[in-house]
Computed example of a mutant assay.
Amino acid sequence: MTDRPTVHRNQIAEARNVLGEVIARARFAGEPTILINRGKEAAVIVSYEDFATLRELRAYLEELRSGDTADAKHKARVLDEALALAKYRALDSG
């Protein structure tokens, strides 16, 4: 099992002051930074690689959802469940 990266949290104004550091952590260390606005999570700065992976996963899921075979529908259901669990775990640990 791989270690989960450190997740940083910053107010948007604080992150603005150290933007280079925030970007470097995301880019080189794979450590995302959650941006907080008025006490709520507003956005996340992640590496381009992580962003591209998420985009590809979303496109793949949409492709599976629109498929007309039982296999595609099954894969879509499995991926939907995995994403729902990941979202639940992320929100629960935040």
Rank of each mutant, 00 (worst) to 15 (best):
90 A>H: 14
88 Y>N: 07
22 V>P: 02
3 D>E: 12
71 D>T: 15
41 E>P: 08
79 L>W: 01
70 A>F: 11
47 S>H: 03
65 R>N: 09
13 A>Y: 09
26 A>Y: 02
36 I>N: 00
86 A>R: 10
24 A>T: 06
61 L>G: 03
63 E>H: 13
20 G>C: 04
24 A>G: 05
33 T>E: 00
73 K>P: 06
93 S>R: 15
30 G>F: 03
11 Q>L: 12
2 T>P: 12
65 R>E: 13
2 T>R: 10
84 A>W: 02
70 A>Y: 11
63 E>W: 11
85 L>A: 13
30 G>T: 03
92 D>N: 15
73 K>G: 06
19 L>R: 05
82 A>N: 14
40 K>W: 00
49 E>G: 07
9 R>G: 05
52 A>W: 09
82 A>L: 15
75 K>T: 06
87 K>V: 09
79 L>H: 01
82 A>G: 09
90 A>K: 10
4 R>I: 06
34 I>S: 00
58 R>L: 12
31 E>T: 02
59 A>D: 13
19 L>P: 03
32 P>G: 02
94 G>N: 14
68 D>W: 12
65 R>A: 05
71 D>W: 12
94 G>C: 11
18 V>K: 07
30 G>E: 01
54 L>H: 11
47 S>I: 01
74 H>D: 14
93 S>K: 15
92 D>R: 15
24 A>Q: 08
13 A>F: 11
13 A>V: 12
36 I>F: 00
39 G>N: 04
58 R>I: 08
47 S>Q: 02
85 L>G: 04
81 E>H: 01
6 T>W: 10
42 A>L: 05
85 L>H: 04
80 D>A: 07
36 I>Y: 00
29 A>C: 02
59 A>H: 11
60 Y>H: 13
33 T>H: 01
17 N>F: 04
6 T>C: 06
66 S>N: 14
69 T>W: 09
16 R>E: 13
18 V>N: 09
2 T>I: 07
52 A>H: 07
9 R>N: 07
87 K>I: 10
33 T>A: 00
91 L>N: 15
